[in-house]
Design a binder for these strands. Structure first.
Lengths: 105, 105
DNA sequence: TTCATATGTAATAATTATATTACATATGAA
DNA sequence: TTCATATGTAATATAATTATTACATATGAA
């Protein structure tokens, strides 16, 4: 974790309950996309959108594997993180934010 | 802090750099609206929008005071908070999120 | 009265985010 | 060949967020 953009991306990633839910599931171990979609009762296009945000925030990483039955599977797993939020930590972070900062997309 | 909605509101509030900046400034002491707008070089309507989000996330509270020159001033100050984010804490939080949860507006 | 400094908000524009539908490829099993 | 299960994405629709402009009120000082 370095810049304030990293932090706003992280907060943005965790601002949607389904993405927090995805993180919670992955905290119990890696899953492949179709498996996750079934568990979340969510369409894959929508799930991909959420996973992309989580990956953009460096909360998850993906890797490919071929199953015993020959299917390509894309696994997602959680990256370790440990973040402390308090007035003091946010004050330090805020000090690095320029006055004309916009939301990073 | 109780429900997952409280947390997603908090993350949403911190997902914009200017709101983190506002929190950082208020960590140094309370400010009234016009004072903040000047320091942030931001229009008051836009600042109000950001402050409303921060207040909705229970990060700040407001109070009114009459200045020595008779002007009504609306002060904002930071509420204390201390949040720890890790796979384990998010796993606990995620367990409370229903499968059909949508973003709370 | 006019000016400067507070407050507040309604209306709109512009941009992003969220969600769905409809495609497409590839593999192994039946 | 057909089916089930993986993958991926393009196009579109809907909704929410972000940002600006234009108002309005109130106070005390000049």
């Amino acid at each position: 974790m370095n810049s304030y953009e990293d932090y706003t991306k992280l907060f943005d990633a965790l601002s949607h309950p389904m993405r927090v839910k995805i993180v919670g599931i992955l905290a119990g171990g890696r899953k492949y996309v179709s498996e996750l979609a079934k568990e979340l009762e969510m369409s894959r296009p929508l799930l991909y959108m959420h996973l992309k945000k989580l990956e953009g925030a460096s909360l998850v990483v993906d890797s490919y594997e071929i199953s015993e039955t020959g299917k390509t599977m894309r696994f997602f797993e959680l990256k370790p993180f440990d973040i402390h939020l308090s007035p003091s930590t946010l004050q330090d972070l805020a000090a690095t934010i320029p006055i004309d900062a916009q939301k990073s997309k």
